[in-house]
Nucleic acid binder design. Structure first.
Length: 98
DNA sequence: TAGTTGACCGGAA
DNA sequence: ATTCCGGCCAACT
């Protein structure tokens, strides 16, 4: 559904490709040994309340050049991972991020 | 195009 | 410490 507001088309229920690109970019910039939370990534990408969406985006991404294992939950838990939560924990430990 | 689904978050019980 | 619940919003169907 599209809503017109002051000449702007706000598409409800439709994708925001800018957000997705920004998320991937932010995650790819996380240095070795550092971690960000899903919420922080969402904020960096311009949508502070879209932490859950960050997860679904990273879930879709299989590009190894994007270190999505460095994104963890704000409550201190590790969170999920494409190749298994154990693998994620192991990678972080190897980088000294734990 | 409308409805459903989560790699989440923060507060409440 | 641990579930439970409502809100969030791009992707999926």
């Amino acid at each position: 559904m599209a809503i017109k507001l002051y000449g702007l088309r706000l598409d409800v229920n439709m994708k925001n490709k800018f957000f997705t690109q920004k998320v991937l970019n932010v995650v790819s910039q996380i240095p070795r040994g550092a971690t960000l939370t899903y919420k922080e990534v969402a904020a960096q990408a311009g949508s502070p309340n879209a932490s859950r969406v960050v997860g679904s985006i990273l879930k879709q991404n299989y590009d190894l050049s994007i270190p999505c294992h460095r994104v963890i939950r704000s409550d201190g838990k590790i969170g999920e991972y494409n190749r298994g939560a154990q693998k994620k924990k192991q990678l972080l430990k190897e980088e000294g991020a734990l």
